[in-house]
Amino acid sequence: MSPVDHAPSLKTQASSPKTHAPASLKLVSSDLQQALLALRNKDGGWGYYAGKSSRLEPTCWALLALARQAGATLDIGALRGWPRQDDCLVDTPGTPINYAFNALAALTLLQNPDGAVLATPIAGRIVVAKGVRLEQATALRQDNSLQAWPWIDQTFSWVEPTAYCLLLLKKMRQNAPGTSTPSLKPPAASLPAGADERIRVGERMLLDRACQTGGWNYGGSNVYGQELWAYVPTTALALLAMQDRRDDPVVAKSLQYLQKDAATEKSAPALAVSLICLRVFGIPASSFEQELIPRLDLSRALGSTVALAMSLYALADTRHGMAAFTL
């Protein structure tokens, strides 16, 4: 046995995802749909795993995935009744406001004509939220003065919350009243004052934190001179937020990284969010579909709502055209 972190042993490989015959995407989608419906809680939401309490992130992904098409078919009832505090949705009572998942909730709400009015106050709070500003640290190659978005108040700015919040504000700006080319059919939500400046800062922060290989991890690219590894899921999310900046060299390099490495991170969540991203960028990605399907065995075994819902959303793109994540 290797003394170090190892590639799965022979025994492990034997019990790795089974080799599937090329699966009918329709059948897989139908199966995922049934699985998600079975995971739904009585209160209309979804927990992260089977039998767990309803939480914001899995509920949003499940709602997006189960919508029959973009627009009115997205059922926002669960979010309409969600507990609120300071204009935001509270993931779990007694815990801090989570900006990443509130941005995801607002993106979800925007997919229903009646949701815009609920998304607007969330966006207003997100515009004023910012990560703490820190002194420069010699051990780190990054600009600590950039105050993009934290996960929760009184913490630093990180990639995933910045990606979600940035995408939300860009989407609202694009569809704000008076904009010449609205892409959403539902009525537009109001763009909060100050959103343009927050978008500029968010973009600068993402460009600053990109890894040398292209791509992003949680939000630190170099510590003590060591280049850190990018991750596939956070790269896909950050690229979605930067889809309107695809000529930027950092974005272009990160897209190359994703195309090259997406299939090496063999998990359903990583492959699903990569599929969503590549499709939004208009890049053929059907080979990833067959990579994704066998990985769903583990997601099903764990009862992972987010993995199943992300996968259904990624595979059922003809229904919704990735509208929630497309600028």
Binding site: D5, H6, A7, P8, S9, K11, T12, S15, S16, Y48, Y49, E160, N217, Y218, Y231, P233, E265, K266, S267, A268, P269, A270, R295, L298, S299, L302, S304, A307
Partner: peptide, 28 residues
Amino acid sequence: GHRRDIEYLLATTGLYDQLKDLDVRFVD
């Protein structure tokens, strides 16, 4: 603390298969 994708870690480290063989549950 860094990676959210627990399915990736469980599969690549081989831990999931070890636990499955022992009928031991993993909690994220």
